[in-house]
Computed example of a mutant assay.
Amino acid sequence: MKNFALCLLATALMSCCQAAPQKADEPIAIISQESNIEPDGSYNYAYETANGIKAEETGTLKKATSPDSSDVIIARGSVSYTSPEGNLITLNYSADDENGFQPQGDHLPTPPPIPPAIQKALDYLLSLPPAKRR
Results as ranks from 00 to 15, higher is better:
Tyr124Trp: 14
Asp97Val: 11
Lys63Gly: 04
Leu122Asp: 07
Asn99Asp: 03
Pro111Phe: 06
Val79Asp: 01
Glu38Trp: 03
Ala117Ile: 09
Lys2Thr: 12
Asn99Met: 04
Ile89Arg: 07
Glu56Asn: 08
Leu122Lys: 12
Glu57His: 00
Glu48Met: 07
Val72Leu: 08
Arg134Glu: 09
Glu98Gln: 14
Ser66Asp: 11
Glu85Asp: 14
Asn87Asp: 14
Leu91Gly: 04
Ala24His: 09
Gln22Arg: 15
Ala29Val: 02
Glu56Cys: 01
Leu91His: 07
Ala20Thr: 13
Leu13Pro: 01
Lys23Tyr: 10
Gln33Cys: 05
Pro84Cys: 06
Ser42Ala: 07
Asp25Lys: 09
Ala131Gln: 13
Ile118Lys: 05
Ala10Cys: 13
Pro130His: 00
Ile37Asn: 10
Pro113His: 06
Leu6Gly: 03
Asp123Ser: 00
Thr82Ile: 14
Gln22Val: 14
Ser15Met: 14
Asn3Trp: 08
Thr110Ala: 11
Ser69Thr: 13
Ile37Trp: 08
Gln18Gly: 13
Met14Glu: 03
Ala24Asn: 08
Ile74Tyr: 10
Ala95Leu: 07
Ser15Arg: 13
Ser15Pro: 01
Lys2Phe: 13
Leu122Tyr: 04
Thr65Pro: 04
Lys54Pro: 00
Val72Cys: 04
Ser94Ala: 15
Ile73Asn: 08
Asn99Glu: 03
Val72Ala: 12
Glu98Asp: 12
Tyr43Gly: 02
Ile73Ala: 10
Ser66Leu: 10
Leu128Cys: 00
Leu8Met: 15
Gly100Tyr: 07
Asn36Ala: 06
Asp123Gln: 03
Gly86Arg: 11
Gln18His: 14
Gln119Ser: 06
Tyr47Phe: 15
Asp96Phe: 02
Lys132His: 06
Gly52Leu: 04
Thr11Asn: 09
Tyr47Asp: 07
Leu108Pro: 00
Tyr45Gln: 00
Leu128Ile: 00
Gln22Leu: 14
Phe101Thr: 03
Glu38His: 09
Leu128Pro: 00
Thr58Tyr: 02
Ala46Pro: 00
Asn99Tyr: 06
Leu9Glu: 01
Ile74Pro: 00
Tyr47Lys: 04
Pro39Ser: 11
Ala131Tyr: 08
Pro115Asp: 05
Ile118Gln: 11
Ala95His: 08
